[in-house]
Nucleic acid binder design. Structure first.
Lengths: 115, 115
DNA sequence: TTAAAATACTTAGCAATGCTAAATAGTATT
DNA sequence: AATACTATTTAGCATTGCTAAGTATTTTAA
């Protein structure tokens, strides 16, 4: 259980990170859960109910595309996602927005005012 | 009008910044609106409907305390806020949480994985 | 001296997103 | 055969920023 503050900080950022990971190459929901957990060193441990709706939103917005893969070695199908061209561009844009946002916030903690 | 992404990034951060500003010395709602706008160079332009509920939450949580000031030069009262001891400690904690959060997010954009 | 603008606070209702929780199903391990 | 792991779906809640409108006082300008 996290405090409310930490929880709220994630809003918007999770979707950005999921898009970023998918831009790195085709992947699927369950793997994203694992990667978010591991690559954040246990700081972004999502429940399925958080991740999957993010994937559906990204798909609705046309930023990623899905196809069901008939596993080769195994039979159970996975829903593979990859970034569309629009998704790749949007990923770049969000990175820039994030960086500017970060700078703005940090400005409030530097020397009293944000020069 | 901002895009949905930029809007969502603010969640949690606005309350953190308001607490930070109040920790810097007694102030009141309208002044906070101005300072957030100016010290962010126009990036955090809040409507009253966003700011005042934040102040009420901080007060409910016991992080800030309010008193009505009978203006000296003017008659109209302002609701002055200042940080409580708990608020000062919480401000420090949130700064640390923010810094760790920031690091974690940036980790996803550095060298592919978050070492 | 009246009208407008700026100062200052309040509140109702909506939108977006992370959370809890539970359900479904196939595969691997013991 | 039972349990754990992989994998996806969905319903409902909580939090918080947004729009929008309203009230009231003070200052400025016509």
């Amino acid at each position: 259980m996290e405090d409310r503050f930490s929880q709220q900080l994630k809003k918007g950022v999770l979707e950005m990170l999921v898009l970023k990971l998918i831009c790195g190459g085709p992947t699927y929901g369950y793997e994203l859960l694992t990667r978010l957990r591991e690559e954040s060193h246990g700081r972004f441990v999502l429940k399925e109910g958080t991740l999957y709706p993010i994937l559906y939103r990204l798909e609705d917005e046309g930023l990623i595309a899905a196809r069901w893969s008939q596993g080769e070695g195994r039979t159970a199908p996975k829903k593979m996602y990859e970034a569309t061209e629009a998704g790749i561009l949007e990923n770049i844009r969000r990175m820039q927005v994030w960086q500017e946002f970060e700078e703005t916030v940090n400005g409030f903690y530097r020397g009293g005012n944000n020069a």
